[in-house]
Amino acid sequence: MLCVARREFVDAIAGKWFLLCSLTFALLALAISFVSLSTAGSHAFAGFSKTTAGLLNLVMLVVPLMALTSGSASIAAERERGTLLYLLAQPISRVELLLGKYLGLSGALICSICVGFAISAIVLAWHAGSAGAGSYALLVANTIVLALAMLSTAFLVSVLARRASIASGISIFLWLTLVFLSDLGLMAGTILFKLRVQEVFALAIVNPMQAFKMGVIHAMNDSLDVLGPVGAYATHTLGNALPLILAGVLVIWIALPLLLASLCFARRSTL
């Protein structure tokens, strides 16, 4: 399993698409740090500063895209190239193969996230000191969890899709859905059906992106009242359980798709 992980990691790091994404991520993180430093001096009264807000948006756009596209290619592309057959003829079980690939790709994703954030952290350290270092570390940790969740979802797509092109198509659509469509739809629903706060909250946190965002904001502000009545409702009714619930949503998004992917892959009657 570890050797599959290792090869997957090396392949991912050497891959052009992955490199492009990592570079983009690092550069944008750097740019955000610079831009937010240049505006209006260096006040940081809010635990949630403009830098974190900018990085949060960047993370929600780029990281799921990276995870979804690289993950959806994993099994489907091997199947299409015929290498999957070859791998499965080796002394390794299907679940081991899947988990090995997951491990390798998560390693690659974590590396790329860490490097991106590290560069931006060094810039921030130089120009703004260490205020918010704790929040920053929390943001990084949450980002990694989000990446793992999206990767897991991508693996499910990859196992189910017949062709690599279909898998990447579905993953792009999933990305669009999770990043934009579901939120926009929920916004429309909130306006049209006059949803109550608890309904909006329950529907919103189903989206791992929102759970991630709320998790980061809660970690920094110790409450979600920045997010209006719904956030205040969640903070006050759920109290200490709130961060656990948000983390739980992400953990479910990691575990459930991966479990389903393993089951489907293991029980698949064709390749």
Partner: peptide, 14 residues
């Protein structure tokens, strides 16, 4: 301002 509940979507790509 029309629907304050939407503030939950603050700081998101949407």
């Amino acid at each position: 301002s029309a629907e304050p509940n939407l503030r939950i979507f603050l700081h998101s790509p949407a």
